[in-house]
Computed example of a mutant assay.
Amino acid sequence: MSTDFAVCFTPGTITDPQDPHASLYDYDDANTVITLADWYHKAAPSIQEIYLRGNGGGNHEPIPDAGLINGAGRYKGGPATPWARVNVVAGKRYRLRVINISAYAGFEFSIESHSLKIIELDGINHAPLTVDRMMVYAGQRYSVVVHANQAVKNYWIRAPMELQHSSDNKNLDTENVYAVLHYAGAPAAEPTTRARGSSGTLLQEHLLAPLENPGAPGGNHPADRSIDLGFTRNTNGQTEWTVNDIRYESPDLPTLLNIVANGFTAEPDFTTHENTYVLKKDQIVELVIHGSANGHVHPFHLHGHPFDVIQGNSGPANYINPPRRDVVGVKGGTVIIRFKADNPGPWFLHCHIDWHLEAGLAVVFAEAPNEQRTGPAPQIIKQSWLDLCPIYRALPPALQ
């Protein structure tokens, strides 16, 4: 069992030399990267096995033992590990890059006595929007500008966790997730104010608008391809998450290899459990994702594309300037997203909660398969690699 919650993790960031928001902040460096994580004492394979066993083990998702900010956190009965510290100088403005790297938990992020000016989400610049707190779900990223314009002292950075049946793990206190915003000249100590509790304006996602090229693909006209995706959980015999009644299972051969080497271009070419949809090049694709009634927020992530959130969990439908991102939270209602199929390749759409992905909550979009094999930008696979497929198939089953 782990007893120390000082975990090392260094995310990679890419800075834009043409950043349109550069005038809004003074600092953007390693000190201003904020990671939010859930931490488990037990190794993932063992607790995953129990979860996937369903009625034979446990129906609930594995619950973490603690929440961490920048790798530091505490659990009930554990050591008083020092909180992570973000250092600032009075009067300066800081671009904080807030990243949720958790397996399960969402976090409500805020900084005591400071507002958050959101300027980017999931790598897409947005018009500045000021809030006091925001939900950050697994896989989501935000850049916020924080102005160090308060009295010189220490302030709580708060990130209480949102996840179901948290009482399953007696070590976890979902509220006890903190770091310290430390002003230069303040004592090296925890804030003296009351730690728990946050208030003020909570981010409503539909109020965010992309800064560049706003507007959903195809405007308010019907999409070229509209796909309904409904997902459910099944615990009869084992825990499964399905999309349109199909649990995703990885194929023996990667989807890209089947497209390029074996000529897979139509949906019947793929097995049922690959749950693969074939998209034509440059189609306007609309995904209508029907939420689960069990109360989870499922953060759905699409590889290969940012997408426009036409209808999210808040606000009316918007085709004019909807938020653009690559991870969207889906709860009990219906979420509608759009993208243009202009990036040939096999792209995964999956729930970013690790336990749900392992249980099958995913589909694949085989985008423009013909263009992956021929045309100006084909995917080239060496013959020596292609020769591996018949070699593999010739192996006895025990070695495959």
Rank of each mutant, 00 (worst) to 15 (best):
T3I: 03
D4C: 06
T13V: 15
A22E: 10
D26A: 08
Y27M: 06
Y27D: 12
V33L: 12
A37N: 14
A37H: 04
Y40P: 06
H41D: 13
K42P: 00
A44W: 15
P45G: 07
I47W: 11
R53W: 03
G54T: 05
N55Y: 01
G56R: 07
G57P: 01
P62C: 05
I63G: 04
I63R: 09
D65A: 14
G71F: 10
A72L: 01
K76G: 00
K76V: 10
G78Y: 05
P79Q: 11
A80K: 14
N87Y: 06
K92T: 11
Y94I: 08
S102V: 08
Y104F: 08
Y104L: 15
G106Y: 06
S110K: 03
E112L: 04
L116K: 11
K117L: 12
I119K: 03
E120Y: 00
D122R: 11
N125T: 02
H126F: 03
L129R: 08
M135Q: 11
V136N: 10
Y137V: 11
Y137I: 09
Y137H: 13
Y142Q: 00
V145N: 07
V152F: 12
K153C: 02
Y155G: 13
I157Y: 04
I157L: 12
A159E: 11
L163F: 07
D168P: 01
L172P: 08
T174G: 01
T174N: 05
N176W: 04
A184H: 05
G185N: 09
A189W: 00
E190H: 08
P191F: 02
T193A: 13
T193S: 15
T193M: 05
R196V: 02
G197A: 06
T201G: 03
T201S: 09
L203N: 05
E205Q: 12
N213V: 04
P214F: 10
G215C: 08
G219N: 03
D224A: 09
S226E: 15
S226Y: 00
L229W: 02
T232Q: 13
T235E: 13
T235F: 06
Q238I: 01
V243Y: 02
N244K: 07
I246A: 02
Y248F: 15
Y248E: 04
E249I: 08
S250V: 07
V260G: 09
V260W: 10
G263T: 01
T265H: 10
A266Y: 06
A266H: 14
E267T: 14
P268L: 02
D269S: 15
T276M: 09
T276N: 12
L279G: 00
K280A: 14
Q283V: 00
I284D: 10
I289H: 06
A293M: 01
A293L: 04
V297C: 14
P299H: 09
H303K: 10
G304L: 01
F307A: 08
D308V: 00
S314T: 15
G315Y: 01
G315M: 12
I320Q: 14
N321P: 02
D326F: 12
V327C: 14
V327N: 06
G329C: 06
T334L: 02
R338H: 08
G345K: 12
F348M: 12
L349M: 14
C351L: 07
I353L: 12
W355Y: 14
E358I: 00
E358Q: 14
A366P: 08
E367P: 01
P369G: 11
E371M: 02
R373G: 07
P378Q: 12
K382R: 10
C389V: 04
R393K: 09
L395C: 00
P397V: 09
